[in-house]
Amino acid sequence: MKKANQIASLIGIAIAMFFFVLTFQFKQIEYQDTGPALMPRLYSGVLIVLALILFFNSYRTKEKVEKGNVKMALITMALVLTIVVLIPIIGFYIITPIVIFVFLKICQQTNKKILFGLPIGVVLFIFVFFQKILSVPIPTGIFFQ
């Protein structure tokens, strides 16, 4: 966890510095002490101090990183990213069942009822509940508009 904490503190400092520098582009209000930059500067300053504390504390940390199958989590994120990227192009109702099917295959599901039933069931539920009952205009993609 030592290295992870040090990286996290450096990221924290970078984010805080980024916000802090940007506050100098805000307009100055002469008649008022509390302009738009006051709070972001305060937050950035405290974040930098906290990140420094984390950095120096990291040398004596006893925290442990929880182990797990990170590869599987990354695959899941990639699949969600695929849905999010492709929804505006080919539409929710096409990409979602395909990705769910792929996910189930990766998870070594062999039961055909689940393999085909779950993707269809999920989109059917979204169609009925969100599109028909709640009137949410689910994107159908550029080809089907």
Partner: peptide, 18 residues
């Protein structure tokens, strides 16, 4: 869990869009 995970994630996508 293989059944629950995609259901949750699809609800996350549709929910935040809605």
């Amino acid at each position: 869990k293989a059944i629950l995970t995609p259901i949750i994630l699809v609800l996350c996508i549709v929910g935040s869009y809605a």
